[in-house]
Design a protein around this nucleic acid. Structure first.
Lengths: 231, 231
DNA sequence: CGGTATCCCCCGCGATACTG
DNA sequence: CAGTATCGCGGGGGATACCG
């Protein structure tokens, strides 16, 4: 069972549902369209399977999530209307976090998996040639995996940690910190490329249009607050 | 130290700051103007002093709260601009909770202390006679205390658990559940009075104007969601 | 792939007492 | 009033194995 505060206050009730570890991040993923168990694990790389099961169950019990079986017996999770109504709040949290909680992260906890998963999801296929595009990331200093491939076909996309067997159209070499900083909006993509911290090798079409198709995290454009930024 | 998710995502960073037990409720109180340690304890009746200390410290470290010493050596806590910018999010949470998370609470966990504290804070002194008004609450079925007095002077107000020694102008007799339901907006004040579940005895001026000066919780007017209320 | 089951450890937290 | 200090426990949750 979940937290109880013993208060009738609506904020208290909301906090009972939302205030447990990982819950807000699971909701973030649901809002972004993640629906399958393994995709949650990919996006929340440090969560354990048992805890993920538990949280999804709690969210289901609370009426924010509904579980559906596909025809081929796989499970999918979706937000109910109650869950979807949290979207403006989650966006508010993201903007707030971007302004006020951009903490420095120590090198060894940089989560490459989540960033790669999100980059893949957010790539703009319409800004790419209308054929198969294979983008190979070489990420130095990653906790576990150094090589990632994003395969974008006109109608589907896939993130691979093993060589998918097609020829790479573009190879991007960088390190975990720069990757995170670019994704989060701390560093502009052009600056990272110009400074040699984000090397591109391969198709010149892809290279020249990269800032069009490689979209950063959704809060990358929120201006961080500075000293004296208070009204 | 607080939760770490190991992600650069702004929602994740926000969740690290806000996602621990009691933190959202402490912020609620700060937004409502609570500034002193004992007042937090009153409003969050189930929190332990050590945990309250810890959370206030974490919020201070995170830059949401600032601690000030008054001239007479007492401590007060206030929100920084970063903390104040959470207000729309907290209001969103309250509205969402009011619509989707009005859970039934079992009788023995009805928090009378928090409700009395909030009722006192929200009483509209301008709708009362411009003199001292003493309102005595008799709350049956309360976990600990049955008698409460709210003393409203034109320029200050006070919540007492011992008879303040002035004559009562109005005595309100009810029980913990009705008190919570009225405060939360589940039951209309007039209906509770009409149904005899909220007895008034004393000044007829106060009795007749009660719905003007006894303001309910701030989310009492949010319409709860019903079946079929989804778009 | 999509989970459940089990074990066990650690620490978050409640309770209580005490201090300036 | 405004905390700090200490102690002890319970269960949250990590790790791992296993099942359909």
């Amino acid at each position: 069972m979940s937290i109880k505060y013993g208060q009738t206050c609506p904020i208290s009730k909301a906090a009972e549902v939302l205030g447990e570890r990982w819950t807000l991040l699971i909701l973030r993923e649901l809002l972004l369209g993640t629906s399958r168990f393994n995709d949650f694990q990919r996006a929340l790389s440090q969560i354990s399977p048992s805890l993920l099961t538990k949280r999804l169950g709690q969210l289901t019990d609370a009426g924010l999530v509904i579980k559906k079986k596909t025809t081929d017996k796989r499970s999918e999770y979706f937000l109910t209307p109650a869950g979807r109504e949290l979207e403006p709040i989650m966006i508010g949290l993201g903007k707030w976090g971007s302004r006020w909680a951009r903490g420095q992260m120590s090198g060894d906890e940089l989560d490459v998996e989540m960033v790669m998963y999100d980059l893949c999801r957010r790539i703009d296929a319409d800004a790419l040639p209308a054929c198969r595009n294979v983008i190979h990331f070489v990420v130095r200093g990653a906790a576990r995996l150094t090589h990632w491939w994003i395969v974008v076909d006109p109608d589907k996309r896939e993130l691979c940690v093993n060589n998918p067997g097609h020829e790479d159209d573009l190879t991007i070499t960088t390190n975990a910190r720069i990757l995170n900083e670019v994704w989060a909006g701390d560093v502009r993509l052009e600056d990272a490329i110009g400074g040699g911290r984000f090397e591109l090798k391969g198709s010149s079409v892809l290279t020249q249009s990269i800032s069009a198709w490689l979209r950063r995290g959704m809060f990358a454009d929120v201006r961080p607050a500075r000293e004296g930024d208070c009204r």
